[in-house]
Simulated scan of single mutants.
Amino acid sequence: MSRILPQVNFIVFLVYLSAVIYLFAYKTPTPERNLCVSIVLCFALWSFCEAHAHLSPTPERALMWFSISSFGWIIFPLPVLFFYLAVTRGIKPNFKALLVLSFLCFFLITAQWRGDLINEVARGPFGWVAFWANSPAFHLFVIYYSTILFFCAFLALKFWLNAEERRQRAQGKILFFTVVAGFFVGTFSDVVAPMFEIFQVPPVACLAGLIWLAGMVPAVTKYGLLSLELGYFKDLYERLFEFTPDPLALLDERGIFLSANQAMINSLGQKKR
Rank of each mutant, 00 (worst) to 15 (best):
W212Y: 10
Y145V: 04
S67Y: 11
G215T: 09
V15W: 04
F71D: 02
T178K: 03
A44F: 06
P203Q: 14
R169G: 07
M195W: 12
F196C: 00
M264V: 01
F126E: 07
V142C: 15
L236A: 13
V217R: 09
S38N: 07
W160C: 10
P57A: 09
S38L: 13
K173D: 02
G231D: 06
G90K: 01
S259Y: 00
K158H: 14
S47P: 02
C42R: 03
L161S: 09
M264K: 07
V8D: 02
G182K: 00
V204G: 04
S189I: 06
I174D: 03
R114W: 05
A153T: 00
P29L: 05
I4M: 15
F184L: 12
G215C: 07
D235P: 01
L225N: 08
A122E: 13
A205E: 05
T187S: 14
E120W: 12
Y84K: 01
I143K: 04
E229Q: 11
R254I: 00
F82A: 02
L45E: 07
A181N: 09
A62V: 02
R167T: 15
F103Q: 03
E242S: 11
S102L: 09
D190E: 10
Y26I: 00
I143Y: 11
F188Q: 09
K234I: 02
R166G: 14
L175N: 05
H54T: 00
S56A: 15
Y223E: 02
F183A: 04
L14A: 13
C206V: 01
V12D: 03
H52P: 00
F159N: 05
P6W: 10
N162R: 14
C206L: 05
P77F: 06
I4P: 00
S70F: 01
F95C: 00
L228W: 10
T221V: 13
G231L: 10
F126D: 07
L236T: 12
C152G: 08
G224T: 05
R33T: 11
A260H: 03
V121L: 07
L149K: 06
Y16I: 07
L210I: 10
K92P: 00
E253C: 06
P125D: 12
L23H: 04
G255F: 09
R239T: 15
F106T: 15
P247M: 01
F131C: 00
G124H: 09
F76M: 12
F150C: 12
M195Q: 13
W73K: 03
F24Y: 11
E32S: 14
L258E: 14
I109H: 03
L108M: 06
M1L: 09
P125I: 12
A163S: 13
R166D: 15
W65G: 05
L81C: 01
A260S: 12
L17H: 01
F199Q: 15
K158A: 04
I256F: 11
A137D: 05
F76E: 10
E253W: 08
E60C: 00
V8G: 06
F103A: 15
P245E: 05
E242T: 12
I118Y: 07
Y84Q: 02
